[in-house]
């Protein structure tokens, strides 16, 4: 479904990605792990079209998208939930969800749109209870739920998640990942960027380890989780048995 080949990016003169290749197949959950500054966010921003790569290609369902404008990429079905607080704080929760439906609202029927809302409310009752509240006044966890809800309103074919656990209490992280599990079971294709490698490797099918702008390891999550290098560098388990 997604095929990234040898992409290179640079901020000013500093190279961030130095020839990264990776792929995501339909129905798969893939994770990118790595330390801060490894280039994980840069890579998904390149896929979303927010950042244009200097070299290499990105193919989505057979089409080259490396030079396509970001809003068109979203409309093609690659929907990103960025890190931080990816919501419109001045808008109400309901208005945010409506913004989420922006790429598709002209293409779908009123009933379909209503179903989309019901689907999101079903996943996140917390969000449904606060429809008229300003999104900026929600807690961090609720904002993350709203952000995922908005992305789902956009009818994603490939969902890109950037650090959904960032800054959240463990109980909320569990809550978010339970929901992602539901989406995974439904067959949604997901590319997950996570600093919490343990969590990411438990959730995903396949993973890539990024370090200083290069893929240093890739493979089945179970295999990655068992490997000595990953355990030492990213899981903080030095010498301990699994």
């Amino acid at each position: 479904m997604l095929e990234v080949k040898n992409i290179e990016t640079a901020y000013d003169q500093v190279r961030v990605l130095k020839g990264v290749s990776m792929s995501v197949k339909k129905g798969e959950v893939v994770t990118l792990i790595g330390n801060n500054g490894a280039g994980k966010t840069t890579l998904i921003n390149a896929i979303s079209g927010i950042l244009k790569p200097k070299a290499g290609s990105i193919e989505f369902e057979g089409k080259e998208i490396a030079k396509v404008a970001p809003h068109k990429i979203t409309r093609m079905g690659i929907v990103q939930v960025p890190e931080g607080r990816p919501i419109f704080g001045n808008y109400t929760v309901l208005q945010n969800l409506r913004m989420g439906s922006y790429p598709v609202y002209r293409k779908i029927s009123k009933d379909e749109l209503k179903n989309d809302f019901e689907f999101v409310y079903g996943l996140f009752p917390e969000v449904k209870d606060r429809l008229d509240q300003k999104a900026g006044s929600l807690s961090g966890g609720q904002q993350q739920m709203l952000a995922i809800g908005m992305a789902l309103m956009s009818h994603p074919i490939l969902l890109l998640l950037d650090e959904p656990s960032l800054g959240l209490a463990p109980i909320l992280v569990d809550r978010i990942f339970e929901t992602l599990e539901v989406l995974k079971q439904k067959g949604l294709t997901i590319l997950l960027v996570e600093q919490n490698a343990n969590l990411a490797l438990s959730f995903a099918d396949r993973g890539y380890v990024l370090d200083l702008g290069k893929v240093v390891m890739e493979g089945d999550c179970k295999v990655l989780k068992g490997s000595k290098e990953v355990r030492e560098a990213y899981l903080g388990l030095v010498g301990k048995a699994c």
Binding site: S48, G49, I50, A69, P70, H71, T74, R75, V79, Q80, V81, P82, P86, I87, F88, G89, N90, Y91, Q95, R98, M99, G100, Y102, P103, Y105, M150, S154
Partner: peptide, 24 residues
């Protein structure tokens, strides 16, 4: 209107607006 809302949204947060499929 959705179009008007999208216009204000792209003023608030252009990156998010891009990601919502808005032509900023």
């Amino acid at each position: 209107t959705m179009f008007g809302m999208a216009l204000v949204a792209s003023a608030f947060n252009p990156k998010m607006a891009h990601l919502c499929g808005v032509n900023v």
